[in-house]
Structures are given as C-alpha cells and as structure tokens.
C-alpha cells in the first residue's frame, strides 16, 4: 500500500483553506487504512508556510521553494508533483478542485497511467477500496465511484471542514529541479473588475436561470418581483453566457458571492457552482418544476411548480400586501 499525498495551494500568499480541507480528508483516509500522509508545498519563499502545514496535519511536507513556482504554471508544477510522487510513493494523490487543480491533476493522472476522479465531496477507505462521492449531470445526481489504485482525485472546496488539530509532521526539502523548458508562459493575473452592480449589498435578490428562455422574460417575470420586494435581479451562469444579462448579475463561483436577507431562486437547478455563491443567504426560497432539483437542499422554503405561473402571482400578492 502506498501513502496519501496532498498538493497544497496558495491564495494571497498563504496556504488556502481548501488545502486544510484536503488535510482533513487525507487524515480520515489515512486513519482508516493505515496510510501515511504526505504533502507537497511548492512556492517561492514558502518555508514558513511548509512548517505551518507540517504542524497542522500535513504529515511529511515535501518542500519546493523556487521562484519558478511562485505562481501556478504547468511544466514547473508538473515537475514538482512528479518529484513529490517519487518521494512519497503515494497510491492516492489529492488536489483541490480549483483552477490550478483542474488544470494539473488530470494531466498528472495520465502521466502515471492512473485513475482520475474529479470534484469529489467525500472520500472514504472501504477495506482495500477507495470510495469517492461526487455529483454528475451538474448536480442532478450523485455518483458513487470506485477507482482502481493508484488514483488522482480532486476534492470540492468547502465539502468538509478544514483540519484544525495539530499533529507532528516535518518538512523535507524535495530534491527537484523545477526549472527547464516551460511550454506555457504565465503572463499575469487580472483581478475581477469593480462592477456597476454590487449584489453583495442587496438585501433581497430574485434570480432567474436558463429556463427563463430569453432576456425579455427577465423583464417580464423576474424584475417585477425584484422591484416589488425592493431588491435586485440576479442570474445563473447560462443566462450570462447567452448574453441575456451582463456578467455582474451572475451569482456563483465565477460570479458574485451574495448573502442577502432573502434569495429567491426561480428555475435554477442548484449546481454546486451556483450554490457556493448564494447558500449562506439568510433565507432562501426556491421555485422549480423538478421536485428533485438540488436547489431544494439549500432552500428554506421550496415550491414545486412552474415559475411562469408562480412568480407573477407572487409579484401581484407582494404588491397587494404592501397596499
């Protein structure tokens, strides 16, 4: 049996929360199966961060400290991960399902002719096997996946609590040459532009999804309810992709994160990328014609029905209630 290796990630100069979630997953699997935990920390000037990870559950922390890995870039990171795999001999490698994780992890799997499973929200050792749970069909179903080992998996950020205990680990400098040809060239990161519409300040948001079918339906159905409630309009990604509304209205992992007093989701299925942007709203009403839509898991009040019937009636009733 091999070890379990997790690949740490930095955000604003610190090890990000999602990495400590990987620690939590890794330690649970390690405990159940008798594996050892190893981590990879690759960055520039990150020795202290590696020490911290070693004290906070990361096990044996393999350190690559070099300016070419100061930010994510394909070839240097492939070299770092390959060296860590040689050093730790894992049969389970965990990444976070983040933009660098999903860029790198499948490639690492292919390089080692290994199984690959992405965006898992649970991982468990069951006897000899590893069982991974994940969503399919954009959240409509869950799937129980059993890979052959070795396996590379990415874990969904936020799917478990970060490991908060302390544990004795140590930092081991990895003897890896991460320099050399880089076939992709990092140019820059552009932070999100400040937008005209700041949904994070709205106390009520009424959001519509793909099922609205066109921009005119937002005007006719969604906007009047938002106005009656003195709130703002929001949208799921397909609405913005189709050009019905500008990007600043998009709620979710690649849009805005909102926390209004009331969030009304109209014809939105509840894919995880949407949920992460709105699930901490104070109160959520979901209207969807599919009783199994995952949006109902995070909603406080749910209505199974046709939004084109319910939303206009609700708008009317709100107006009447206001007098």
């Amino acid at each position: 049996m091999g070890s379990i290796l997790l690949v740490a990630e930095f955000q604003k100069g610190r090890i990000r929360e999602a990495t400590y979630e990987l620690v939590a997953f890794a330690r649970r699997v390690a405990e159940a199966s008798g594996r050892e935990v190893h981590s990879l920390v690759a960055g520039s000037g990150v020795e202290a961060a590696a020490e911290e990870l070693a004290k906070k559950g990361g096990g044996t922390v393999h350190l690559v400290d070099h300016e070419v890995v100061a930010q994510y870039s394909l070839d240097p990171f492939l070299r770092a991960v390959t060296a860590a795999i040689e050093g730790a001999s894992p049969d389970i490698v965990l990444f976070s399902n983040t933009p660098s994780g999903w860029d790198l992890a499948p490639r690492v799997a292919a390089a080692h002719d290994a199984a690959f499973v992405s965006d898992c929200f649970e991982v468990e050792a069951e006897g000899e096997n590893l069982v991974l749970l994940r969503r399919v069909f954009n959240g409509k179903f869950d799937a129980r996946v059993v890979p052959t080992l070795p396996v590379v998996a990415t874990m969904q950020p936020g799917a478990t609590s970060a490991f908060e205990g302390s544990a004795d680990g140590q930092v081991a400098k990895l003897d890896a040459d991460v320099t050399g040809e880089s076939r992709t060239q990092f140019v820059e990161v552009r932070e999100a532009e400040k937008k005209g519409v700041d949904l994070s300040k709205a106390s009520v948001i009424v959001s519509g999804g793909r099922s609205l079918g066109g921009p005119e339906k937002f005007e006719e159905v969604i906007k009047p309810l938002a106005e009656a409630l003195g709130g703002a309009v929001g949208a799921s990604r397909p609405v913005v992709d189709a050009g019905w509304l500008p990007h600043e209205y998009q709620v979710g992992s690649s849009g805005q994160t909102v926390q209004p007093k009331l969030y009304v989701a109209c014809g939105i299925s509840g894919a995880i990328q949407h949920l992460v942007g709105m699930k901490s709203s104070n109160f959520i009403i979901a209207i969807n014609k599919d009783p199994d839509a995952p949006i109902f898991e995070v909603a406080d009040l749910g209505v199974v029905g046709d939004l084109f019937e319910i939303v206009p009636a609700l708008t009317q009733a709100v107006k009447e209630a206001k007098g």
Binding site: T184, F186, R190
Partner: peptide, 13 residues
C-alpha cells in the same frame, strides 16, 4: 483563462 470570482489569468502557449 477563468479563475475564481471573475478573476482572469493570461497564459501564452
């Protein structure tokens, strides 16, 4: 390429 929360990364290949 798209990062999280509306940020972008520019890469050359």
């Amino acid at each position: 390429r798209e990062l999280e929360g509306g940020a972008l990364e520019v890469v050359k290949l």
